[in-house]
Every structure is written in C-alpha cells, then in structure tokens.
C-alpha cells in the first residue's frame, strides 16, 4: 500500500538524513488486505526510525505528545490505533515534546 508519511516537530531527527517526507510502500499485514495504524507504527519503527525509537513509540502506540493526523484529520477521530489506512493516504506525525 502506498502511503505518504511526514515527520515533524523534531521526529525527523530520528530518521535517516532527517528526511521529513517519506513516500513508502507498506506491505499488507493482515489477511484482509488492510493496513491499520497499529501495524503502520510497528512498520515505521522497524523500517524508518534509525535512533531512539522511544522518542516515537511507547508501548504499542505513539509516545504521548506525538500528534498523528491521517489525511489532515486528528487520528483520535479516525479510530486511533485501529484506524484503517487506504491507498495514497497521508499520515503525519508531529512531536509536541520539543522546544517552543
């Protein structure tokens, strides 16, 4: 599944070359041809995060203080970890834990 992932607020520093925007192809992880946010998070942790993963995830969710938007919509309104993604979705992660 093709997705665009964006990292901001300092999270990009955890990625290779501090690249903010990643166009990725995420493998479908369950039998029903879907990718849920939960699966995406573990995929990102395994494939994109280069250092200090604890700044990005805590338990099986994002670390509190990391804001997630799916197609510009607060993921808390889309079902959080259970939100299902679709082809060409844009998922944004912004850390609010950095300086103001």
């Amino acid at each position: 599944m093709h997705l665009t992932l964006e990292f901001g607020g300092g999270l990009e520093l955890l990625l290779e070359n501090s690249t903010k925007v990643h166009k990725v192809d995420v493998p479908i992880m369950d039998g029903e041809g879907k990718v849920a946010m939960k699966g995406l998070l573990s995929w990102v942790k395994a494939n994109l995060i280069k250092e200090r993963p604890e700044m990005f995830v805590k338990g099986d969710s994002v670390r509190p203080g990391v804001l997630v938007l799916i197609n510009d919509c607060d993921w808390e309104l889309c079902g959080g970890l259970d939100a299902e993604l679709e082809e060409k979705d844009v998922v944004v992660f912004i850390s609010t834990l950095h300086g103001g």
Partner: peptide, 11 residues
Amino acid sequence: ARLPPSRAGSR
C-alpha cells in the same frame, strides 16, 4: 480538495 475519507472519521 481531497475527497473526505470514507472511514470511521467522518463524523
């Protein structure tokens, strides 16, 4: 203008 996603979020 992106089409609103047809998922649970469309409240």
